[in-house]
């Protein structure tokens, strides 16, 4: 019973491609940072669902680590935008 999860992964990856449009267009750096943050969130969700599709728990551990690392990178980019670095 993993067919719904397959479809959900496909939709999430299409949404990642749409977020990349804002990453290319975005007039300021802050817009691009928001787009990257969104892509990170969507990738974490897609990894969680992929863990069910492939029946591999390691995908979800990778998702936790990815979420925390992307958080650190987001904080650095935000500090750079604010001119505090």
């Amino acid at each position: 019973m993993t067919a719904p999860f397959d479809i959900a992964v496909f939709i999430l990856l299409v949404l990642v491609c749409l977020a990349l449009v804002r990453l290319v267009l975005g007039p300021t750096i802050a817009d691009r940072a928001v787009a990257v943050d969104t892509v990170n969130t969507l990738v974490v969700a897609a990894l969680i669902v992929l863990g069910v599709v492939y029946q591999q728990i390691i995908f979800i551990d990778v998702a936790i680590v990815y979420a925390l690392l992307s958080f650190v990178s987001t904080l650095y980019v935000a500090k750079y935008i604010g001119g505090e670095l």
């Binding site: 987001t74 935000a78 001119g83």
Partner: peptide, 13 residues
């Protein structure tokens, strides 16, 4: 927390 940080940085810039 990340969105809070980006908003603060954007307003400071």
């Amino acid at each position: 927390i990340g969105s809070h940080a980006i908003a603060r940085g954007a307003h400071r810039s």
